[in-house]
């Protein structure tokens, strides 16, 4: 088990290293010099040089890369070109909106998908199965940001149950959760539809396995075999999808923030793009990628918890 975890940890480190190189290289090819962009066309050469050295732009690229990476490892993401404030400070507030939103949505998606998927598989071909499948077909086709607009129209503008947007901060937990609820629902439903279908078909696949017949021969009812034998085996493909969905949810969170005027990473990154504040973009992207890779590492560990064959292998 330890060896498996170590091998996954190694591949996590390699993925992160390669991702950082890719991101750095892409941003490096950007035309233009941030320092002259910040100071405008009338900048004096010596002020320019001073700013360049302040921003760490006057050293070779390879050194800059290592400075960037070591800085990030120490929690220092550099200075924003536009606001001259530490990027880490700008990001950390925003991250505590986007990340909880994505996780909230993931939780909702799983909570919806599990009962729906199990119900559909257990009652295959019956009315409940057909209606669940029809609903998921619609759910998959739903663009989350449009669905979010409909939710605002209905629950905020018409019914006035929720406010149409904004975020009160985490100091008062219930109202923070309330502010994130509509966005999380909008994000979660389409993903829940996908997860339901995956769970259903994984369950139906496992229900054809020989060991299910063995379990039935032992005297287990259909329902008992589903819960005791099929569900855990079906979890393996479902975990893969959950891992993938997290990255969609994180990206989706950035889009949804626009609908609800949430002060998350999305706002920050789109602002930074328009202001060509590349160091902020670079850092946010790196952070997003880090989150995705980390979640996939956790999914790998979850595989091992489910499947003894993985634990015994190196």
């Amino acid at each position: 088990m330890l060896r498996y975890a170590l091998s996954r940890l190694t591949s996590l480190a390699i993925s992160l290293a390669v991702a950082s190189v890719v991101i750095f290289l892409v941003v490096e090819v950007a035309p233009g010099d941030p320092a002259s962009y910040m100071l405008g066309i009338n900048a004096q050469p010596d002020t320019l040089a001073a700013l360049r050295s302040e921003l760490g732009l006057d050293v070779p690229k390879i050194t800059r890369y290592f400075n960037w990476v070591t800085g990030m490892l120490a929690g220092d993401f550099g200075m924003s070109y536009t606001y001259r404030t530490p990027v880490s400070q700008m990001i950390s507030d925003r991250l505590w909106v986007s990340l909880p939103l994505a996780l909230y949505a993931l939780g909702l998606a799983v909570l919806i998908a599990f009962p729906a998927g199990v119900l559909a598989a257990a009652r295959r071909g019956k009315t409940s199965d057909i209606s669940v499948m029809a609903a998921t077909q619609l759910g998959i086709a739903l663009p989350n940001f449009w669905f979010a607009m409909l939710l605002v129209l209905f629950f905020a503008i018409n019914l006035r149950w929720f406010s149409a947007g904004g975020f009160p901060g985490w100091s008062y937990f219930p109202s923070a959760i309330k502010a994130l609820t509509l966005p999380a629902v909008a994000l979660a439903l389409p993903q829940a539809a996908i997860l339901t279908r995956v769970l259903r078909s994984a369950l139906l696949d496992t229900l054809h396995e020989d060991y299910i017949r063995t379990a039935r021969a032992k005297g287990l009812t259909r329902r008992q075999t589903l819960w005791r034998h099929a569900l855990r085996n079906a979890l393996i493909p479902v975990l893969t999808i959950i891992g993938l969905q997290f990255s969609f949810l994180l990206a989706g969170a950035i889009i949804i923030e626009q609908v609800f005027y949430l002060p998350g990473l999305g706002r920050l990154v789109f602002q930074s793009i328009s202001q060509r504040d590349l160091i902020v973009v670079e850092s946010v992207v790196m952070l997003l990628v880090f989150a995705v890779i980390l979640v996939n590492f956790l999914v790998d560990l979850a595989y091992a918890a489910v499947d003894p064959r993985l634990r015994s292998r190196a």
Partner: peptide, 27 residues
């Protein structure tokens, strides 16, 4: 069906052809 479940594994046992797949790999 519930009565039959009481028979299976109790008064009737069954052994299958393919031992490699007849057991749940996770238990």
């Amino acid at each position: 069906e519930p009565q039959m479940c009481n028979q299976r594994g109790n008064t009737i046992g069954m052994v299958f052809q393919e031992p490699m797949t007849a057991l749940n790999p996770l238990q």
